[in-house]
Nucleic acid binder design. Sequence first.
DNA 1: ATATCGAGACGAGACGGTCCGTCTTGACAT
DNA 2: ATGTCAAGACGGACCGTCTCGTCTCGATAT
Lengths: 210, 210
Amino acid sequence: MPPDAARRSDRSRLAVLAAARDLVAEVGYPRVSIEAIARRAGVGKQTIYRWWPSKGAVALDAVRALSEGEGGAITLPDTGDLEADLKTVLRATAAEFTDPALSALLRALYAEIAVDPELATLYREKVDHPLTEAKLARLRSGQRAGQLHPDADLALCLDFLYAPFTQRWLHRAGPLDEAYADALVEATLRAFAPAHDVDPRPSRPPQADR
Amino acid sequence: MPPDAARRSDRSRLAVLAAARDLVAEVGYPRVSIEAIARRAGVGKQTIYRWWPSKGAVALDAVRALSEGEGGAITLPDTGDLEADLKTVLRATAAEFTDPALSALLRALYAEIAVDPELATLYREKVDHPLTEAKLARLRSGQRAGQLHPDADLALCLDFLYAPFTQRWLHRAGPLDEAYADALVEATLRAFAPAHDVDPRPSRPPQADR
DNA sequence: ATATCGAGACGAGACGGTCCGTCTTGACAT
DNA sequence: ATGTCAAGACGGACCGTCTCGTCTCGATAT
């Protein structure tokens, strides 16, 4: 007996997501209780338990609400220069990861996902998959333009672009600056370059090794 | 007034880590309470609170206890064939990520790390850094053998090898099989290959040159 | 050498608080 | 009439702190 979604109060829904967003930013996700969200939102506890299965699910929706001003389908910039476009997008991602409200929520979401398989599935379907499709589209466009090898594994290419970036941010292993973004894009394109695009190594990042 | 480490009961320490390991495997990390760990370990609650600042810190030590049969310094295989060695190591990592007890603990640890900066620092120092050093050493050896570009950014190279692997596992985005491990190694080596080791696509084992 | 003693970690668990997830109530909307 | 809503009561679990009495030490006194 699922609740009747048609009669759902949008007012309460938004109040819950906003309260969750603010509380997570203020006291940190682990110290946010569902009771506190309800209090802050001016909402009955049951209203939260009726519509969300877990605190993590609320976090997921709060993330979606924050990063979804776009409304319709997501489209990445396509100026014809794949390398430049990817650097632009990666820098934008860095900015999102740096935004306090969004980043606190995203950290919480990744934490719950690591430990909650059902939430992970929800995340993949509702957040990751649409984004991945948009990114893949841009890579395919670059591939058609001869900027990637015709046989390149584009999914793997995406992993190379985003996984190191996300991990560095999650582990706080280093700054998400333009140097790192650029190095990531350049090395990835090197790995998936078309056959005879032989241009030797450009510069090496400053602190390479000791 | 930190407690006197010299008088610490090793018996209790090990019992706590074992109890944590077992409980996490049995009921899942979020449902493991410190009280339950103490009960299972036959240990006073205070003994846990005395030596660990949080449940996540216990998880970190439990992971260390599990993956630290090695004792001394970590060394990666070095047969002279970098590509083969990296595939070997990545497959071993996949096996660790598949082991039920270790993987449940590791998921918990990554979840806490995402949200707890202090624990993240501890993780980087005690777990990640030593491992990274060992991996870097192997890459340097390959670099000296001419299997990597002399100016290659080895830290970035490591990110390429491991971050996509870890993320795929964390997000349950796909199987951690040999095909993925091999593709990861091949594409990474392509990105950091020495200058004129042309012959792009279908990767071929590097010929030992010297 | 042996006995005494104090410090501190130990197992056990009491304690007040918080939060969990469920359930009940009465108001309100459709 | 039905179902969501805000509000909050409810028993139970767990939190983190604390107080017990026991035990193992090393230092000192005999």
